[in-house]
Amino acid sequence: MFRNTNIRNPFFRSKKSLNHFENKTQSIQWLLLNKNMNITLRANDIFKSSIDAVESRVNEVFQTGRYYYDSRYLQFSLSYKFGNNDISVKNRGTGNEQEKERILN
């Protein structure tokens, strides 16, 4: 992203530009043990590119700055689903079957 601003008046002149570089996030996921175990590895700002570069000129004084906000991290997560996946569900009739037929007709 690049933004350029100009401020002009008889007593104060300013020119400012801001460059912002986007960061790169990557993740990979493994499903194991019949998809009951999930392993995820995630990295944020891999290339250390979350930097703001600012250049400004105020009343003919030039200023420059580079600001780095550390947002790098590496995340590891492990989850496991416990329980029975083979649960059989039996449909039961609830209520009065004659009433249901009367309503549908």
Rank of each mutant, 00 (worst) to 15 (best):
residue 35 K to I: 05
residue 26 Q to Y: 15
residue 35 K to F: 02
residue 22 E to V: 00
residue 46 I to N: 14
residue 58 V to T: 10
residue 24 K to S: 03
residue 31 L to N: 14
residue 17 S to G: 01
residue 54 V to E: 11
residue 27 S to K: 09
residue 23 N to G: 11
residue 10 P to D: 09
residue 7 I to Y: 03
residue 31 L to S: 11
residue 54 V to Q: 12
residue 33 L to W: 08
residue 48 K to D: 09
residue 30 W to E: 07
residue 11 F to S: 01
residue 36 N to L: 13
residue 48 K to V: 02
residue 21 F to Q: 05
residue 31 L to C: 03
residue 37 M to P: 01
residue 35 K to N: 14
residue 42 R to Y: 00
residue 45 D to Q: 03
residue 19 N to W: 06
residue 13 R to A: 00
residue 26 Q to M: 14
residue 50 S to A: 13
residue 49 S to V: 01
residue 57 R to N: 11
residue 59 N to H: 07
residue 38 N to E: 08
residue 16 K to H: 04
residue 41 L to F: 14
residue 55 E to P: 00
residue 7 I to V: 01
residue 59 N to P: 12
residue 38 N to H: 12
residue 10 P to L: 08
residue 33 L to R: 13
residue 58 V to Q: 09
residue 32 L to G: 05
residue 23 N to Q: 15
residue 34 N to S: 14
residue 50 S to C: 02
residue 41 L to M: 13
residue 54 V to P: 04
residue 50 S to F: 03
residue 50 S to D: 15
residue 8 R to T: 04
residue 18 L to M: 08
residue 45 D to I: 03
residue 30 W to Y: 15
residue 49 S to I: 01
residue 54 V to S: 04
residue 35 K to T: 06
residue 17 S to K: 04
residue 58 V to R: 10
residue 23 N to V: 00
residue 34 N to Y: 10
residue 26 Q to R: 02
residue 53 A to W: 06
residue 19 N to F: 15
residue 11 F to N: 04
